[in-house]
C-alpha cells in the first residue's frame, strides 16, 4: 500500500475517483432534477480523467465531447420539455430506497469481488504512453469496419426514429392555421 501511495498518479486517481463517486452518488440522490443532470457532468468528467490515466485519450475526448457536450444538453432539454419539477421535490424517488440500496450493495460486492479476485494486482502496462489515435482509426476502418458502419446506421435510425416518435401530429385546426400562414 505504501508503495502504491508513493506513485503520484495514484494520488490523482484517488482524488478523481472520490470526486467521481460523490458526483455519481449525487446523481442518483439529488432531489433537484437539473442538479442531478449537472452532477452527471461531473461524474462523466471524472470518468474521462480516469480514461486519461489509463492512456485512452481519444475515448476521454469522445466522452467529453459527446456526453458532456451533447448528451447532457439533450437531457436538459428533455427535463425542460417534460416540465419535470426543477425545484426541491420529495417525490422524485419512490419508497423502495432500502431494498434498492441493498440490491445495489450486493451488485457492488459481487462485481468488485469477481473482478478483483480474477484480475487482482495485474499491472497495467505502458501506462503514460497515449494510445495512438491512428491505430484506433485503422481499427475502425480496418478490422471493425462492418460494426462501425452498422453503428453508424443505428445512429441514423435513432435519428429518424427520434424524429418520428417525438414529432407531434398537428390537430386539424392547427394544420389549417399553419397552411394559412
Amino acid at each position: 500500500m505504501g508503495e502504491w501511495l508513493s506513485q503520484p498518479v495514484n494520488w490523482v486517481y484517488l482524488v478523481v475517483g472520490v470526486l467521481t463517486l460523490v458526483s455519481a452518488f449525487r446523481v442518483v440522490t439529488s432531489q433537484n432534477v437539473v442538479h442531478a443532470a449537472l452532477f452527471l457532468v461531473a461524474a462523466l468528467g471524472g470518468v474521462a480523467v480516469n480514461f486519461i490515466l489509463l492512456s485512452a485519450e481519444f475515448v476521454a475526448l469522445v466522452v467529453v465531447l459527446v456526453y458532456i457536450g451533447a448528451v447532457i444538453v439533450l437531457f436538459l432539454f428533455g427535463i425542460m420539455i417534460t416540465r419535470a419539477p426543477t425545484g426541491l421535490d420529495v417525490a422524485l424517488d419512490n419508497d423502495k430506497k432500502l431494498p434498492a440500496a441493498l440490491i445495489s450493495l450486493v451488485v457492488f460486492a459481487v462485481l468488485s469481488y469477481a473482478t478483483v479476485t480474477t484480475f487482482g494486482n495485474a499491472e497495467l502496462v505502458e501506462i503514460g504512453t497515449a494510445t495512438d489515435t491512428a491505430s484506433l482509426a485503422r481499427a475502425f476502418i480496418g478490422r471493425f469496419v462492418v460494426p462501425f458502419e452498422v453503428v453508424g446506421f443505428i445512429l441514423l435510425a435513432a435519428l429518424v426514429g427520434g424524429i418520428a416518435i417525438a414529432r407531434r401530429d398537428l390537430t386539424p385546426l392547427e394544420e389549417e392555421s399553419r397552411r394559412s400562414v
Partner: peptide, 16 residues
Amino acid sequence: MIASQFLVLAAALFAL
C-alpha cells in the same frame, strides 16, 4: 497502478 483500483471504481459506479 493496478487493475483492481479502476475495476472497483467501475463496480461502484455501476452499483450507483
